[in-house]
Design a protein around this nucleic acid. Structure first.
Lengths: 218, 218
DNA sequence: GTCTATATGTGGATAGAC
DNA sequence: GTCTATCCACATATAGAC
């Protein structure tokens, strides 16, 4: 989870790559909320610190730069998605439609229960085509995103071959699926939604994306 | 198209509301491209001016503030969506599935052919829940967005009542539909896509969203 | 490990020349 | 109508005390 660039650790502490240190977790939580509410570029380090009841000094002790905080939030969020969905893909005992349904359901759930992290991750995806964007620090992030998309493409491709799904291009078909799901993070308000709402939304979305790919008359 | 706030014109020139003056169009085009590539907050007025081969002086002659440029781009983009889709909604001779298909197809097309404006509009939608965001200047924008969403809800509701569609909450059902479609603006690269690609994408998306709502076995 | 300065750069917006 | 010059606020990041 620690961004590296040319062998130089981007987090202040070296740390095992892939882990977030205790002192960092609070920072990430506060920053994720701030980035969610104001956007990455419009959020100042002072504001993040203020949410922690601290000052910038603390942030720069744990992270070298603002973009590194962003990086850790995004990778953390993406990793959660992958960890949840990968086991479902492996369930060869289930039909492709069932697997896709569960993948979508799980993804939708995370967009709501882990809203701040996931919404920041969505901001990162948008930077995809942005030229000067935020250095090349975010490349690791795009690797994760591609791997995640590949999980969906795999199931869609298999379902196409056994005639569960329409004859779509698997790679293209992941776009409306993940687009619809990611969009949840933008409109869902964690302050207002309760458990029942989340359950209903996740089911509706899972039905929707599976319906979008299934053959009309099987 | 000229943002007003408490009776004070936000564009430098008074102008008929709803129109974009000739001198402004170039600015909007350049700014839309810049906002697309770097994001609204990360784009400087200097950068917009540079794309025009001009300086800030010119921008501030036509617009009072950066946010007013943003406003005009977004409203222009939204208006294009409404203008294209509203006539389709009125086609009572078509089935709801057919109407929704055409609406989605048209929306998808605009996400690609008018990519810069539409992608900026998507940025605006994301600011929905952002607190300090960009003043209250953008309220007119949200009115347009709600009106547009309502067009989709109308057709979905009618289709639900005549059993073309599943028994969904029309308001909730617009979310995955528009989410999937809006997402196109984020991954589609206008530099690379040709006419055939756009046609294929628009059809695939239209099939997808109609399939997502249609009853499985009619 | 966290704080208080502070250095340094940049960006939005304005004033006034041409 | 566009440019140059400039003001002022603010943001990132650093240095060094505690």
């Amino acid at each position: 989870m620690t961004a590296r660039s040319g062998g130089v650790a981007r987090s202040a502490r070296p740390a095992d790559p892939g882990r977030v240190l205790p002192g960092q977790r609070e920072i990430l939580d506060a920053a994720a909320l701030a980035f969610t509410q104001n956007g990455y570029a419009a959020t100042s380090m002072d504001e993040i610190a203020e949410r922690l009841g601290a000052t910038k000094g603390r942030l720069y002790h744990h992270y070298r730069a603002k973009v590194d905080i962003f990086h850790d939030i995004v990778c953390s969020g993406m990793q959660e998605l992958i960890d949840g969905v990968a086991p479902i893909v492996a369930r060869q005992d289930l039909s492709c439609a069932d697997r896709l349904w569960r993948m979508a359901h799980h993804h939708a759930g995370l967009m709501m229960t882990r809203n701040s992290y996931q919404r920041v991750a969505v901001q990162a995806v948008e930077m995809h085509r942005m030229s000067k964007s935020v250095d090349a620090v975010l490349e690791e992030m795009f690797v994760l995103r591609d791997r995640y998309e590949q999980l969906f493409a795999e199931v869609i491709n298999q379902g196409r071959q056994n005639d569960e799904f329409r004859d779509v291009d698997p790679r293209l078909a992941t776009k409306p699926v993940l687009g619809a799901l990611n969009w949840i993070s933008l409109w869902y308000d964690p302050e207002r939604g309760d458990f029942a709402t989340r359950a209903r939304v996740a089911e509706e979305y899972a039905d929707f994306v599976v319906g979008g790919l299934r053959r009309s008359r099987p």
